[in-house]
Design a binder for these strands. Structure first.
Ligand SMILES: NC(=O)c1ccc[n+]([C@@H]2O[C@H](COP(=O)([O-])OP(=O)(O)OC[C@H]3O[C@@H](n4cnc5c(N)ncnc54)[C@H](O)[C@@H]3O)[C@@H](O)[C@H]2O)c1
Ligand SMILES: NC(=O)c1ccc[n+]([C@@H]2O[C@H](COP(=O)([O-])OP(=O)(O)OC[C@H]3O[C@@H](n4cnc5c(N)ncnc54)[C@H](O)[C@@H]3O)[C@@H](O)[C@H]2O)c1
Lengths: 213, 213
DNA sequence: CCTAGATTGTGACTAATTTCACAAGCGACT
DNA sequence: AGTCGCTTGTGAAATTAGTCACAATCTAGG
């Protein structure tokens, strides 16, 4: 891999898409794929695919395309999917339980090592092999189970405080479902899932399209 | 509102954030706000806030800032939140039910007018006032209930087919939770929620940061 | 009425990202 | 070995997004 310069966020997103496309191709027992085909499946252009990949090295064979298995392997490496990640889930509500039961995360290397909540009715319940713990144990859980990633699926009022505590306990990555902007030190990475925002993007687009003259 | 040129997607996202910030300010009974303050709450810079707003007109008073109530009103207008949207939810599984029960959608103007599924065990069940219908009724529901937005919370294999049917029935906007890129005509708007992708962005970032020399 | 202090709106500049275009490289076939 | 068809990798060009700096303009207060 070449010297790691800054890689655009959008490139990473597309790399994820390419990997998913490659996995489908793998299951169909395709052995090679062209940038053109990857582009179609990933919803972009062939030139973009090649540019994205060129940030990390050159993995293809001219005249032939990319080896499906080899490229998939390289992309997993790039995305950090060669190891398993320990995820701590905070908030055992609707979103939390949907995530917990989603099998694809485990398949991709994300193991939910602990679930925490503040609701006395939920604490102590068992979700499969995992028992829901009181949220007071957050720091303990992160340090003792070596949590890498915290998922916040809690009400917006609670999110910042929990983020602070998680960061303090050493977590470097947070996935936040609460519709608030978290304030964290620069070395901590946060991604957001904000469903209302997605709907608003849609209603803006429809309104806009309709009112165009 | 000035002639509607192309507005960056990222501007729309930020506008959503500003609106959320303004609603919090409204509840705290603030009457005016500066671009600087909005920027802090929205996680961006003051210049960006002003640039974003300038795409749509000029809403502030120099020397004073923006009227909280007035700006919120204008942003709701821009985002198309002045009317109620009729949402058709396809897939009454884990994600579907979490969405259905989320009160903030209704508060923001998105009403779930129908829920559909293909599972005979689920069809006929009542979710509050809504009865789960067979997915065969998709076209009927969209046209008779005038659905504006379809949410796809179904397995990836089913998503493209359902999207095609929804588009055929006249839907102009789709929110897709299935991890596949949908192929739709250009006039149809699609947004994606892809949780695995968010986690992958995080594991990339952590891996990257660690290996930096 | 006039000045001081604050904050917007915007055009020029800078940075980032995407698209383009094509030389270079590979395999297959003769 | 030589040629042909195809596809990558990549610098350069074009486009798009974001930052900066400041004139314009508002309120408040004397
Ligand atoms: N449900 C949705 O469809 C949806 C959509 C968009 C955004 N969200 C956001 O996702 C977050 C979770 O939503 P949800 O629908 O799962 O909510 P929920 O109310 O179903 O679950 C929240 C859980 O967090 C727990 N909790 C509250 N305070 C806590 C604390 N301090 N520490 C630990 N746990 C705490 C609660 O006991 C509850 O179990 C919210 O911020 C919500 O705004 C949800
Ligand atoms: N649960 C998660 O945390 C999560 C995370 C990321 C992505 N997703 C994606 O979201 C989608 C939904 O996930 P889920 O966890 O809710 O799945 P789920 O299995 O709980 O629910 C899917 C629902 O869709 C229904 N369905 C299947 N085929 C259908 C069809 N042709 N027409 C109508 N309904 C049909 C099923 O009966 C089921 O009720 C999937 O594409 C999944 O990959 C889920």
């Amino acid at each position: 891999m070449p010297v790691t310069r800054h890689i655009p966020e959008s490139t990473i997103r597309r790399i994820s898409h390419y990997l998913r496309a490659l996995e489908i191709l793998e299951s169909q027992e395709a052995t090679t794929v062209s940038s053109e085909e990857l582009a179609q499946r990933g919803g972009t252009t062939a030139a973009q695919v090649r540019k994205d990949l060129s940030h990390f090295g050159s993995f293809g064979k001219r005249g032939l395309g990319y080896s499906v298995a080899e490229l998939a392997d390289r992309l997993r490496d790039i995305l950090g999917l060669k190891c398993r990640w320990r995820v701590v889930l905070v908030g055992a509500g609707r979103i939390g339980s949907a995530l917990f039961e989603y099998p694809y995360f485990v398949q991709r290397g994300y193991d939910c090592v602990a679930v925490l909540d503040s609701d006395p009715e939920k604490i102590g319940m068992s979700w499969g092999p995992v028992r829901i713990r009181p949220v007071e144990e957050l720091e303990l859980v992160i340090s003792s189970l070596k949590g890498d990633i915290v998922i916040l699926a809690v009400p917006p009022e609670a999110a910042q405080d929990l983020a602070d505590r998680a960061v303090e306990a050493g977590v470097r990555a947070i996935l936040n479902f609460a519709p608030v902007q978290l304030r964290v030190p620069a070395e901590v990475h946060v991604t957001y899932v904000n469903l209302v925002l997605e709907l608003e993007a849609l209603s803006f687009a429809i309104t806009q399209a309709g009112s165009r003259t």
